[in-house]
C-alpha cells in the first residue's frame, strides 16, 4: 500500500502514514474550517489499511497535536474508533499521544479520548522545547 502524506498547514496537521513500517503519525494543530472534509480521505485510507492488516502486525501510531478544535476532535474520535475495532479484532495497535508538558489543553484532550477507549493509549509529556524524535 502507498504511503499517505499530507503536508502540514497552519490549521491542519502533518499526516504521514507509512504502511511498510507500520507507523502512522499525525503532528500539528487541527482546526480546519471543515474538519470532516479534511479527515475523510484519512478515514478511507485507514479503512483500507486496517482491512488488509495482518493479524500479527504491530501498528504504532503517534500523535502530537497541540490543539484540536471541537469538530476535529470528533473526527479524531472516529479515527480512534476504527483503531479500537482493529484492536478488538485482535490486532496489536499502540497509540502514543505526545504533548508538551505546559500544554494542559492537549493533555485534557488526550485524557478525554483515552477515557472512551480500550486500545492501548499512552500519554507521554515532552519536556520544554523537546521534540519527539527518535521514537
Amino acid at each position: 500500500m502507498d504511503d499517505l502524506f499530507i503536508a502540514q498547514t497552519k490549521s491542519t496537521p502533518n499526516i504521514l502514514f507509512e504502511p511498510q513500517k507500520a507507523k502512522l503519525s499525525i503532528e500539528g494543530q487541527s482546526y480546519p474550517e471543515n474538519a470532516f472534509k479534511f479527515y475523510e480521505p484519512i478515514f478511507v485510507w485507514m479503512d483500507e489499511y486496517l482491512a488488509q492488516l495482518k493479524e500479527d502486525a504491530v501498528l504504532e501510531i503517534y500523535f502530537h497535536m497541540p490543539y484540536i478544535n471541537t469538530s476535529s476532535s470528533k473526527c479524531m474520535m472516529m479515527l480512534f474508533e476504527k483503531l479500537e475495532e482493529a484492536h478488538e479484532a485482535g490486532k496489536t495497535v499502540n497509540i502514543r499521544w505526545y504533548y508538551d508538558q505546559d500544554n494542559e489543553i492537549a493533555l485534557d484532550c488526550a485524557e478525554e479520548f483515552k477515557e472512551d477507549l480500550t486500545v492501548p493509549f499512552e500519554i507521554i509529556p515532552l519536556a520544554d522545547e523537546a521534540t519527539k524524535d527518535g521514537q
Binding site: 497541540p66 471541537t70 505546559d102 500544554n103 494542559e104
Partner: peptide, 19 residues
Amino acid sequence: TDGYIDQNGGTKDYPMGRK
C-alpha cells in the same frame, strides 16, 4: 466556551488553558 481557553498565543503558541 472553549474559545477563550483554547485561544493560541504566548511564546509557544499553545492554547491559553483553563488554568
